[in-house]
Write a protein that binds this DNA or RNA. Structure first.
Length: 154
DNA sequence: GCCAACGTTGGC
DNA sequence: GCCAACGTTGGC
């Protein structure tokens, strides 16, 4: 079992939005970055867990935990000419983009802001991807030790 | 294959 | 709104 961090802009899709969905489940679609695509296609598996991170907002922070409830499968929004995620170069026969399904697990007892994570020597020393300079990936791996450490800050 | 131009992300 | 850091595109 592996751990991840998923970024989302709360104005577009927040943890509360996920909790409000039918079955508290949603497709994690629209990823159009090859490095993240590879993770979705090859590495992220049903049964994994991920932090839900709010980005591009007043207080960027880890706000909750979600369950990965599917393996990666082709992102069908790429096939839909009306979708903003349409990509003519991705076809059902040869899909270019992938997604997984995620389910609400729980909200953290308190939000853990990025500013606080940046002050944690353990995370800096262990090369935590979120606080790494220039890191812009919308999905990133979290080690078991990092996962437990962050939960201990709750 | 290089690299300039452009677009995007996301913290501040 | 600014801007640093990346990623992508396309001419050559």
């Amino acid at each position: 079992m592996n751990y991840w961090l998923l970024k989302s802009e709360p104005d577009a899709f927040s943890l509360n939005d996920l909790q409000s969905r039918p079955n508290q489940t949603e497709h994690w679609d629209g990823v159009r970055n090859y490095q993240v695509r590879n993770m979705l296609r090859d590495d992220i598996k049903k049964g994994d867990q991920a932090f839900f991170y709010h980005s591009s907002c007043k207080v960027p922070a880890i706000v909750g935990v979600v369950d990965i409830v599917s393996d990666g499968y082709p992102d069908h929004t790429a096939f839909d000419a009306h979708s903003k995620y349409f990509d003519a170069k991705s076809t059902p026969e040869s899909p270019r983009w992938y997604m997984v399904d995620v389910a609400f697990h729980r909200a953290l007892k308190r939000e853990i802001p990025l500013s606080e994570l940046k002050q944690q020597a353990f995370l800096l020393d262990s090369d935590f991807a979120l606080t790494r300079k220039g890191s812009r990936l919308s999905i990133m791996p979290v080690s078991v030790d990092q996962w437990r450490y962050i939960l201990s800050l709750e």
